[in-house]
Design a protein around this nucleic acid. Structure first.
Lengths: 210, 210
DNA sequence: TATATTATATACCAGTCGTTATGAAAGTTG
DNA sequence: CAACTTTCATAACGACTGGTATATAATATA
C-alpha cells in the first residue's frame, strides 16, 4: 500500500525533478468517477478505467495507488461536486424547505444528461459483493453520516415548530433518504425526468408541516 | 444453448432412462437464488453457485443451461415465493389498504432473517454492468410490470373515491415504488427492523385518502 | 448380460481480473 | 556532458472467470 501522493493539488505549480507526467490528474480522476458511477466498483475493470482516463495501468497505479484508493478519491470528488445539494438542503430555513431543496437537487442531479444514471452511493453500496467489503463499508459510512445530519436538522425543525406534535423526525429522515434512494433506483432504471418530477411533486405534497 | 429440460416439475414421478441425478433441482435452485440475492448476478461466481448448490459445474450446466438461464429461473422463483405480498397488496379494498399491505409486506420480506438483505430486483438492476445487459433488461421489465399494475390499481382507487380530487395516481405509484426501493437499499445497508418500521409508519401516516 | 442413456467427477480451455517487473524515455541537477 | 529521478509503454504475473471435453459410474431397457 503506497502512501498518498497528494495528487489532488495541481502539480504544475513547482517543476518536479524527474520526467513530468503527461496527463492531468484531476481530469483523469473525473474520468474514473464517471466509470465507477456508470458500472459500480467491481463492474469497473482496470481496462475500463485506464481507457476512459487515457493512461496506462502503471501510470494509474503510480498516481493513485490501486483500484480501491482510486475509488475512494473518486468518491471524495463525487461527494464534493455532486452531493453539494445535500448541504444546501440542510441550510434551508424550514423543514419543508429542506425536503424541497433535497428532492429538487436530487432530481436535477439524477436527470442531468452529463451524469451517469443514479447515485454512486446507492450503486456502490448495493453492487458490492465479496472482497470489496471495505469499499461497501466506506460508502455506507458516508450514507450514515448524511442521514445523521438530516436527522439532526429535522430534530431542530421540530423544536422550531415546523412539524405537528405527533411527527417522528427519525421516521421522516428515513423517509427522505428512502425517496432519494428510490429516485436513484428509478433513474438508474431509465425513468424519464417527467416521471421523477411527478414523484418529487407527490412526495412534497405529502410532506407534513411547514 | 440447450433446450429447457422442464426441471421445475418434480422429476421423481416417472423413472428416467439413464443414471438418475443425485440432487434435488428445486433445492439447488433455491440455493442459487440465495446466492444471486446476496451477491447480485455478476457478483455470484459459478464457484459460489456450485458450492452453495452442492453440485459440480457440469451438473449445473446440464440441469439449468448456463448462468443466465439459472438466474432467470431463480428470478421466477423469487417472484413467485418472495413477491407474493405485491399481489396481496393489490387485492386490498382501498388504496390505503394497498399501501399498507405493500409496505408491511415489504418490511416483513426485508427483515426476515431467512432472507438475504434487500430486494433481488433492485440488486440485480443496479449491479448489472457491461455484458449482462439482457439480465438487467429482464429485471427492469418485471419492475415496470409491477409499477404498471400498481398504477392501474391506484387509478381505479381514485375512480372509487379513495383519494382527494387533486391526487396524481402516477405520482403515488412512483412514490410507493420509491419507498419500497428505499427500504430495500436501507435494508441492504444494514438498517434494523425498528428503523424500517418507523419508515413504514411515517410513510403510511403521510399517505392520502382512505 | 449387453447396450444405450444419463449424471457424475476431474481436469482443462481461452479469456479477463487486479497488479507489477522491466527497461526505455524525458525531464532536472551536478 | 554525465548522473539522478520520475514517468512511460510493453509485457507479463498468478488467480480467477464462465464454460467444456473426457472418461467413469449408475440406471433402464433389450
Amino acid at each position: 500500500m503506497k502512501v498518498d501522493t497528494g495528487a489532488s493539488a495541481d502539480s504544475q505549480a513547482v517543476p518536479h525533478k524527474g520526467r513530468p507526467r503527461e496527463f492531468c490528474v484531476d481530469a483523469a480522476l473525473a474520468a474514473a468517477l464517471r466509470v465507477f458511477w456508470s458500472k459500480g466498483y467491481e463492474g469497473a475493470s482496470m481496462a475500463d478505467l485506464t481507457e476512459a482516463m487515457g493512461i496506462t495501468k502503471p501510470s494509474l497505479y503510480a498516481a493513485f495507488g490501486n483500484k480501491e484508493a482510486l475509488f475512494n478519491k473518486a468518491l471524495d470528488l463525487y461527494e464534493r461536486e455532486k452531493l453539494d445539494y445535500m448541504q444546501a438542503a440542510l441550510a434551508a430555513p424550514t423543514a419543508r424547505g429542506v425536503a424541497e431543496r433535497l428532492m429538487r437537487g436530487a432530481l436535477d442531479m439524477y436527470t442531468c444528461p452529463e451524469n451517469p444514471n443514479g447515485c454512486l452511493g446507492v450503486i456502490a453500496s448495493v453492487a458490492c459483493g465479496a472482497e470489496a467489503e471495505c469499499i461497501r463499508q466506506a460508502v455506507l459510512e458516508r450514507g450514515a453520516a448524511a442521514k445523521r445530519a438530516m436527522l439532526d436538522r429535522l430534530v431542530r425543525a421540530k423544536e422550531e415548530g415546523d412539524f405537528p406534535e405527533d411527527t417522528d423526525p427519525e421516521g421522516l429522515a428515513a423517509f427522505l433518504m428512502a425517496v432519494n434512494q428510490g429516485m436513484s433506483v428509478q433513474a438508474g432504471a431509465g425513468a424519464t425526468r417527467a416521471e421523477l418530477e411527478r414523484l418529487v411533486e407527490t412526495s412534497l405534497k405529502l410532506w407534513p408541516g411547514r
